[in-house]
């Protein structure tokens, strides 16, 4: 039986399962709406390191180490670490992997990396190539700011469409051992560019990519929006989510109460982040805390996790290019 269904979706017939997960959240995130769900909240965004890049590496190490511990495995049981981040040459993933005696597969999907790594990891476990894999991603507000935007201490104002890069890291362990949460299938997204060039409006740039992947997934799996308890996009933010709902409605799909966005949910209004959260860590820490915990409790049975990413670099932005975006979707379900 073919493992590919429809045009873009791959099915995991052997149902790889999530046996461990862990999230580490920054200080600001720890004061937001998910403060009761994160397994670890930092007390110092530098983690005692000299630079924010070092701090980001420590975030990864903490997430991976604790996720492995939670899963009941040892380092040597993990066949492969699949990891990526936002910094140039994915240095965080590469450098953090030095601390583990585990082979690394580095990947880059900008803020969609959590879904991308889950999909790749689940495929490798489903194919019988590995028994256990660790999928990790994250981001750090301060290292992302200095790479993509302005120095932290510059007294500029953020535009009302801007989002706040999450400090945090999440890791999921996928295994062929049975457990409650299964990875059912995954839809890899196409690169979509609707001509948005404003780097301070990522939600609008990424919403069409989310639409494309969600519709592709629904068509491939012959399901409807109502079949899911939760359809969760990565970091579209408030504006991006509204745009996605409009776009989907235009295509004849109505996203209702079961739709939400990690970026939109992350921060409380008083935290003044305008459109909400963004960054690879955004969807990673929400998935690896809130979503999996709710699934274990049985509150969500079928979840479509669609992490969105903007595939830009500072050079392409300065050369006036528009922003290509991508979205990968992973379907998770609870099976007793």
């Amino acid at each position: 039986m073919s493992k590919k269904i429809g045009k873009q979706t791959i099915a995991f017939r052997n149902k790889p399962s999530v046996i461990g997960f862990y999230s580490v959240a920054g200080m600001k995130e720890g004061e937001g709406n998910f403060k009761d769900y994160f397994q670890m909240i930092l007390e110092d965004d530098l983690l005692g390191e000299n630079t924010f890049e070092h701090a980001e590496r420590r975030l990864f190490e903490l997430a991976i180490k604790n996720a492995i511990k939670e899963s009941g495995c040892k380092d040597e049981d993990i066949g492969l670490l699949i990891s990526g981040d936002l910094l140039n040459q994915i240095v965080t993933a590469n450098y953090a992997a030095r601390s583990f005696n585990i082979p690394l597969l580095g990947l880059y999907g900008a803020c969609s990396t959590m879904a991308e790594s889950l999909a790749v990891g689940a495929a490798l476990v489903d194919g019988g190539h590995y028994n256990n894999v660790a999928c990790c991603t994250g981001s750090h507000f301060s290292s992302a700011e200095r790479q993509y935007r302005f120095p932290l201490e510059l007294g500029n104002q953020r535009p009302p469409t801007s989002q706040w890069t999450v400090t945090g890291s999440g890791c999921t362990i996928i295994s062929n051992k049975p457990s409650k949460i299964k990875v059912v299938n995954a839809t890899f997204g196409k690169v979509i560019d609707y001509g948005i060039s404003d780097v301070n409006n990522m939600g609008a740039a990424m919403a069409p990519a989310a639409m494309s992947t969600i519709i592709a997934h629904l068509k491939d799996t012959k399901t409807n929006v109502e079949d899911y308890d939760l359809i969760l996009t990565g970091d579209l933010g408030k504006l991006g989510s509204e745009i996605l709902m409009d776009l989907m409605e235009h295509e004849g799909y109505k996203l209702g109460q079961n739709y939400n966005d990690c970026g939109q949910m992350m921060f409380a209004d008083r935290q003044k982040t305008f459109q909400g959260a963004s960054g690879a860590g955004c969807s990673a820490i929400v998935l690896n805390s809130y979503v999996f915990q709710k699934m274990l409790k049985g509150e969500y049975k079928r979840v479509l996790f669609c992490a969105t990413g903007a595939l830009l670099s500072t050079t392409t932005v300065q050369q006036g290019d528009t922003i290509p975006c991508i979205c990968h979707a992973v379907e998770l379900s609870v099976e007793e």
Partner: peptide
């Protein structure tokens, strides 16, 4: 595609919150 992008940009411009 050009027309689609133009329309989308106009739609987004109308939707974004102003300072």
């Amino acid at each position: 595609i050009e027309e689609r992008n133009k329309k989308y940009n106009e739609y987004v411009q109308a939707k974004i919150p102003k300072t």
